[in-house]
Computed example of a mutant assay.
Amino acid sequence: MPYSSKSELPDSVKDNLPSHAQDIYKEAYNSAYEEYKDPDDRKGDASREETAHKVAWSAVKQAYHKVDGDWKKK
């Protein structure tokens, strides 16, 4: 289910990512959730939510990287 605010994001996102990265995650997740609603558009047996989370993390990793356990902007 899409997220309407950052406060709804999973703890693994809220507790680790800076605010801007959370914005990226939320927008990418919501977009992918809509884009991959058809199971034929997803790889293997991945659920709609699983696919959206993978896309969201990928989007974050394009702008941020982990340094000594903390996410830093590239």
Rank of each mutant, 00 (worst) to 15 (best):
M1K: 06
M1R: 10
M1C: 08
P2A: 12
Y3P: 02
S4T: 06
S4W: 14
S4K: 11
S4H: 11
S4Q: 09
S5W: 06
S5R: 04
K6M: 07
S7W: 00
E8F: 02
L9D: 04
P10E: 04
P10M: 01
S12C: 10
V13C: 14
K14E: 00
K14F: 00
K14Q: 04
K14N: 05
K14T: 00
D15P: 00
D15M: 11
N16W: 11
N16L: 09
L17I: 05
L17Y: 15
L17W: 12
P18K: 02
P18H: 03
H20C: 04
H20G: 06
H20Q: 09
A21K: 02
Q22I: 03
Q22S: 03
D23P: 02
I24L: 15
I24G: 13
I24A: 15
Y25I: 05
Y25A: 02
A28S: 07
A28D: 02
Y29Q: 00
S31A: 14
S31Y: 08
S31P: 00
A32L: 07
A32S: 07
A32F: 08
Y33L: 01
Y33A: 04
Y33E: 02
E34C: 10
E35K: 14
Y36M: 08
Y36E: 05
Y36D: 03
Y36H: 09
Y36P: 02
K37T: 13
D40T: 02
D40F: 15
R42N: 11
K43T: 04
K43E: 12
K43N: 12
G44S: 11
D45C: 06
D45A: 11
D45P: 01
A46P: 00
A46Y: 15
S47D: 08
S47W: 15
S47K: 06
R48I: 15
E49K: 13
E49I: 09
E49P: 00
E49R: 12
E49F: 13
T51A: 14
T51G: 06
A52H: 03
H53M: 07
H53L: 08
K54N: 10
K54M: 07
K54E: 06
K54D: 09
V55D: 01
V55M: 08
A56F: 00
A56T: 01
A56N: 02
W57Y: 04
W57D: 01
S58W: 15
S58Q: 14
A59S: 11
V60W: 01
V60N: 04
V60L: 09
K61W: 10
K61E: 14
K61D: 05
Q62V: 03
Q62T: 08
Q62S: 13
A63E: 13
A63L: 09
A63C: 03
A63V: 10
Y64A: 07
Y64T: 04
H65Q: 10
H65G: 05
H65T: 10
H65L: 13
H65N: 08
K66Q: 15
D68Y: 10
G69M: 11
G69V: 10
G69Q: 06
G69C: 08
D70K: 15
W71A: 00
W71H: 03
W71F: 14
K72S: 12
K73F: 06
